[in-house]
Amino acid sequence: MLNINNTENIENVEFTPELIGKFNEIVSRYPEGKQKSALLPILHEVQAIAGWLSVPSMNKVAEFLNIEYIEVYEVATFYTMYFLKPQGKYVLEVCRTGPCCLVGAEKIMKHIESTLGVKEGEVTSDGLFSWRGVECMAACGNGPVLQIGPEYTFYENLTEESVNQLIGKLKNNK
């Protein structure tokens, strides 16, 4: 759900010349006048910087692409990869679909929930972690699997121990 009046909706991404340059390169992949095609990749770029998409950021994307604000909102609310509120620095996204569940994904999710001490979608008090179940990630041969944005690094064949190690490592990274 998108709440335009949410007080968390601060302007949190600076559209630097470098970033605008990157946007222009993306727009150049599409025919003249079809710059709206660049919307999904540009939203990924914005989210990679701030960790989520605030309304002021989306408005600036709309202005850059010369489209209506609503055209950005309707896309951002449709696709599950876009976050519309702040997340933990590391978002652990665990596959919850059938093939991964056959090999223990539900146990892994319970373990993550108890280890981090927060429910699905909530952020730990130190701001480092949040987690959620996501649908099939096309890695069913090495389940259970989880991914961490913005580079969507994959961690496969998960066990409780490997999850502990991963969380420990990320904590040390800060």
């Binding site: 709206k36 660049a38 999904l40 696709y79 876009y82």
Partner: peptide, 19 residues
């Protein structure tokens, strides 16, 4: 951006058009 439906070819084209 994480939508199974975009594997359907016309949904994929809509998505490629930024919708």
């Amino acid at each position: 951006a994480g939508a199974y439906i975009c594997g359907e070819e016309t949904a994929l084209l809509e998505s490629l058009e930024g919708k």
